[in-house]
């Protein structure tokens, strides 16, 4: 039996969005760095994953990308990092994150290249079917075809973590899960900066989602030894967009923090530099 396609045609009817709009948040944290001189580069907007915040991109990627001439932005989803909404995190849904990213996009001077990591990559795909991005980068993306397989792997490897997730606790963000090459002290420091995640959003990861037309180029980055997103899931995500994933062996799940982050960023900037002008890409 061949798997059902993960792509679908245009969806204009979104009655739930019209009748239950995402509640606004009092404050949205957007960390940014701009190149010193004028630039013709499109902005990069980075979206973090489970229990992270904009800080994980602020550490290396945002300043480095700006040094290389890219206006770089990282947004904290509601209830994460410095954004408001922590009090309502327990009833936050994935669609609220989509709303947050769209809101951040409309603040930008022009259509960005959207870079999503893990859960943020799932959010980025849901944004991409609604909004005409310049380019879409998926870093170790949470599977849109359901994380059931990934959860089974977690159940096998870390049963307590699995049971915790079932009852709504945040997935373990221990250093050995996120990092491969970092020294223990730094890894611990980053791990300690992670917060909590909405239980509904974690449960929603088990849903099988289909994404409508995405007309911009897509880059998919995977890590063979990822302890959260299985390589098979990354391959399947990439296949949905008709591309091959780019692999970074020897790294952990957090490719923007782990040793080797600069090589991943190189790949991303190379992809972004080659993008066609907004609007001239063929239908995918």
């Amino acid at each position: 039996m061949s798997p059902k396609p993960l792509r679908r045609k245009t969806v204009a009817m979104r009655p739930w969005d019209w009748s239950f709009p995402s509640p606004p948040v009092a404050h949205r944290e957007v960390l940014s760095a701009r190149p010193t001189g004028p630039t013709a580069r499109p902005p990069l907007l980075m979206v973090h994953g489970v229990a992270h915040g904009a800080w994980c991109f602020e550490e290396h990627w945002v300043p480095t990308a700006a040094e290389r001439g890219w206006p770089a932005y990282a947004v904290s989803l509601r209830g994460h990092g410095g954004s408001g909404g922590a009090r309502h995190l327990r009833r936050t849904l994935t669609r609220d994150y989509v709303h947050d990213v769209l809101q951040a996009i409309t603040e930008l001077p022009e259509p960005p290249v959207l870079i999503g990591h893990s859960l943020g990559a799932l959010v980025a795909q849901l944004v991409a079917e609604r909004y005409p991005l310049r380019g879409l980068v998926l870093l170790t993306p949470a599977p849109m075809h359901s994380a059931l397989g990934a959860l089974a792997a977690i159940a096998r490897d870390r049963p307590t973590d699995f049971l915790g997730a079932v009852v709504g606790r945040t997935l373990s963000m221990e250093p050995d899960i996120l990092f491969e090459g970092l020294d223990a002290a730094t890894a611990r420091e980053y791990s300690d900066r992670t917060g909590t995640e909405s239980p509904f959003v974690q449960w929603e990861l088990l849903l099988r989602r289909r994404v409508g037309p995405v007309r911009c180029p897509v880059l998919v980055v995977g890590v063979p030894g990822d302890r959260l997103v299985r390589p098979a899931d990354v391959r399947r995500t990439a296949a949905a967009y008709g591309v091959e994933p780019v692999w970074f062996p020897g790294m952990g799940h957090d490719v923007m923090l782990d040793t080797g982050w600069d090589r991943v960023l190189d790949t991303v900037l190379e992809f972004a530099a080659d993008l066609p002008a907004w609007g001239s890409a063929p239908l995918r």
Binding site: R14, S19, R28, L102, T106, E107, R130, Y131
Partner: peptide, 15 residues
């Protein structure tokens, strides 16, 4: 109100 009135790919600001 905003949700159906705005452009779906360019929502009105939360403010």
């Amino acid at each position: 109100s905003k949700p159906f009135t705005q452009f779906p790919d360019f929502p009105m600001p939360d403010s």
